[in-house]
Structures are given as C-alpha cells and as structure tokens.
Computed example of a mutant assay.
Amino acid sequence: MAEFLSLKEAVSRHINDGDTVAMEGFTHLIPFAAGHEIIRQEKRDLTLIRMTPDLVYDQMIGAGCAKKLIFSWGGNPGVGSLHRLRDAVERGWPNQLEILEHSHAAMACAYEAGAAGLPLAVLRGYIGSDLPKVNEQIKFIECPFTGEKLAAVPSVRPDVSVVHAQRADRKGNVLVEGIIGIQKEAVLAAKRSIVTVEEVVDDLGASVNACVLPSWAITAIAEAPKGAKPSYALGYYDRDNAFYKEWDGIARDRDAFQAWLNENVFENGGA
C-alpha cells in the first residue's frame, strides 16, 4: 500500500546504488523533481530505463548517476542531441555509459509483459532491422501454432519505477490525466514505485475511464508541486519550451552544465 513520504525520504529509502530505475512520462508529466533528488543524493551505478530519454536523463547521466541506459529514442525534443549523454557514450565523461537500444514497439511490449509478470514480450518486429546486430536481447522465436517468425525481448521489470501525476487522494490512489505514456505499466512492472504528484486531495475527481493507479500498486507517494517542470502537467502548467532550447547550449559545455547543476539542483534544491 502507498505510503506518503517526502520526496527526499522516498528516494533515500527506495532507490539504491546499482538499482534498475525506470522514469516514465511521454512529453508530459516527466518526473524532473524526482530526477533532481536522485542527483542530489548522488545515487550511482544506476541502470536507467526510459522509452524517450530527454533532459531529465541528460542531467542524471551528466551528474554521474548512470552506468547503463535502456531506451528506444533519445534527444532534446524539437531541438537536437542530448550532449551529456553523447559525452558519456563517446568520451566516457563523467563515466562510460553502456547503451541498449530498442524500438518503441518493443519497449512498450516489454513494459506490458513486465506488468503482467511475464518473462518476455513477443511482437511482430525487427525483421530486416539492424538493431538485432547490436542488441543481444533481441531474439527470434517460432510461433508454436502458426510457425511464424516473431521477435522476443526480455520484459522490463525495474527495481524502481518513478512517475509524476496530477493528484493523489488520501487513501493513496493516483490520477493520471492527459497524454499517458507507459506510466501505468511501468508502476505495475516494478518491485517498488515512487509517484510524485502536484497535490494531495480528498477526492480525485476522476472521470469515467480515467487512468487511476491504485494504492496497492504504489510504494511511496511524494507531493511535489511543479514536479514535472520544464515539461508540463495538464491542468496545472504549460511546457517551458524556452528552457528546452536553452538546455542545448548549457549541456554542450561541461563547465556550463556543472554550473547549472550546482545552481539549480544542489544549491536551490531543484527549484
């Protein structure tokens, strides 16, 4: 059952060095506040999983939190490359980063399989692709019923999944509204989960067919207003497009990045 904790305590208690950590949110509700707390606590040797690693993982990788990245697309949306990620992969700064790339379809299927407690996901895909040449996790199997050649990948079953959402009620149920990526499956697939929310309320006000994460599926809830900035939270604030553009210049230079990290994450507590 979900326990209400401060974000600092939730990260300290539930994310350990060496863990496999998934932080999901598709353009929307990206858990930046949680990522910054992981940086502040100097978590190390993490295997990071995310379908679309963008600025939050660029920051965590540049801060030295990660040893491996499992993903299906990486970049600064609408702007260009992730320069801290590239520096880690190409030049080993601040440490060498191992990467494992999948397709979006494979990652989505792998999360769904993990949420169902299955060891692998099966999909039609990767036929004719070069990814199997560089990703040893991609295998091919024969359907026992039709003889069709299918791709198989391991399910995603993180030690910890971290997502951001709009609201939690006082019983520990969480409402996710707007663009929903793979957050529900990420939480259900994980051994432990941390959900940051804009606010805690008496009544979620959930509409019919709303995405509600039940209390029993969540380990910890932390109230973190504006916890998705500079991404956006439907009904609370807009995307800070200007910052995404500014990040390109900040992240290109190691000294500029470290100065930004010190000022905005360490000294100002992620504000």
Rank of each mutant, 00 (worst) to 15 (best):
K133G: 00
F140K: 12
F145I: 08
P132C: 13
A151G: 11
G114L: 04
V153M: 09
A116Y: 02
H104N: 13
P154A: 13
A110L: 00
T146E: 05
S207K: 04
A222I: 06
K149H: 00
K184H: 09
D159L: 00
L118D: 03
I179M: 12
V208W: 12
D159Y: 03
E142R: 14
V195Q: 12
A108G: 11
S215L: 12
G117R: 05
V208N: 04
S129D: 14
A222F: 06
A108P: 06
A116D: 01
V156N: 01
R157M: 06
A105V: 10
A152Q: 12
E142A: 14
K226S: 15
C211P: 03
P214N: 13
V187M: 10
V200T: 10
L213F: 03
I218A: 02
V176S: 06
I127W: 06
G147Y: 15
V153T: 09
Q183T: 13
T196H: 13
K171M: 02
A165C: 01
G125R: 01
Y126S: 13
M107N: 06
Y126D: 13
A206K: 04
Y111W: 10
E223S: 10
G178D: 08
A115V: 03
G147T: 15
I179S: 02
A105N: 07
V174N: 04
G147W: 15
A217W: 07
I127G: 09
G128E: 07
A186M: 10
K149N: 08
V176G: 05
N209Y: 09
A210G: 04
G125L: 03
P225Q: 10
G205Q: 09
A186L: 08
I194E: 14
E177V: 00
I194F: 14
I194R: 08
A116W: 06
G114N: 00
K191H: 09
G117T: 04
P144Q: 15
E223A: 05
P119F: 11
A116R: 11
A116T: 00
P158V: 14
W216P: 00
D169K: 08
V195W: 04
D130A: 07
P225T: 13
V176C: 05
I127H: 10
C109M: 08
A121P: 05
I221Q: 04
Q166V: 03
L123N: 02
S207G: 05
K184A: 13
I221P: 00
P214E: 15
L188S: 07
V187I: 15
V195T: 08
L131T: 07
E148H: 06
V176W: 00
I182F: 02
R192D: 15
G181F: 03
V201D: 07
S193H: 10
V197Q: 07
E142K: 12
G128L: 05
N209V: 01
E136L: 02
G125N: 04
E142Y: 11
T146I: 08
T219G: 13
V176K: 04
V122W: 00
A106L: 08
G178T: 10
E199T: 12
A168E: 02
K171L: 03
P214L: 15
A151I: 01
P225F: 12
G227C: 04
E223R: 05
